[in-house]
Amino acid sequence: MGQGRGAVMAELMFWEAVRRAHDEELSNDPMVLVMGEDVGVVGGTYKATLGLYDKYGEDRVIDTPISENGFTGLGIGASFIGARPIIEIMSVNFAWLAMDQIFNTAAKVRYMSGGQLEAPVVIRSPGGTAHQLGSQHSARMEKVFMGIAGLRVVTPSNPRQAYGLLKSAVRCNDPVFINEHELMYNMKGEVPEEDYFHPLEGSEIVRPGRDVTLFGYNISVHWCLQAAELLSRHHGIEAEVIDLYALSPLDRSGIRDSVTRTHRAVIVEEAEPMVGVGAEVMAIINEECFYELDAAPVRVSALNVPIPYNHSLEKTALPDANDVVEAVRSMFGV
């Protein structure tokens, strides 16, 4: 348990880490089930449930019809009386179809029943922009989910988090949305060999630094780390990188503490800037530590456009590590 520090580690790919968490939680509790499109016989589009259909059977590793609102609602209903469903929505773009059940039921049922009923479901979904998938398969929807009270939102940036967040989410009594990234399933990383439950709140300092804080989450943590290396090497700027793996609730004290150390902040998000993670983190900085700032916070975001098919247009629409470097250079005037 805990942070897994000092534990024996295994190197796993991201999808293997997610698969292992599924396997262990299915094995731990007979009321855990997995449901979604192609999660059974096929083993999941990104192999997150590979082999589990054979191991646990079709009643617990359930291939659903392509009915996102229906099967999400079914999972939520099952969770009312003791089932612990892990619902995979094949692509986060399809989660729009399930918003009614996620927002109107899962997020609100505890409150509107006066605490009598809870919906301990996990909804996990690959999102983000991959390569040339076009406008309707490139949504970055974390900002939509994190705006709804009653729902937890987490987004792993590495296999260790992917494994530990899923395991905690299954056992937590709140509905948890896990935002994964289509480009990260083959990423390798160290995962504790023993059971490891990652906290569903907080943030992690992945690179300490004194001059500026780069806030990232999910894939943008990696852009921040690349940018931090470039800034250190070429400009002598030491950036602290904070991984906001929990988007709701956001780690207000973690954000405040880092900005209090560095006095500067850049928020890096893969999504459009409007009503996003960057805007929210900036608001928290304003509320928590405005007078610690030596410069106005900056966000690095996608352009406010639907994602184009053309490769050059797509690349232009999205931020990358160079954009982060440029934002920091501009902030320091170097």
């Binding site: 007979p30 089930l33 617990r60 229906g70 999400t72 609602g73 079914l74 939520i76 209903g77 009312f80």
Partner: peptide, 13 residues
């Protein structure tokens, strides 16, 4: 509609 089906699914389990 789906919530009822889900409760029934948990009963079945």
């Amino acid at each position: 509609f789906p919530l009822a089906a889900g409760i029934a699914k948990a009963i079945q389990m």
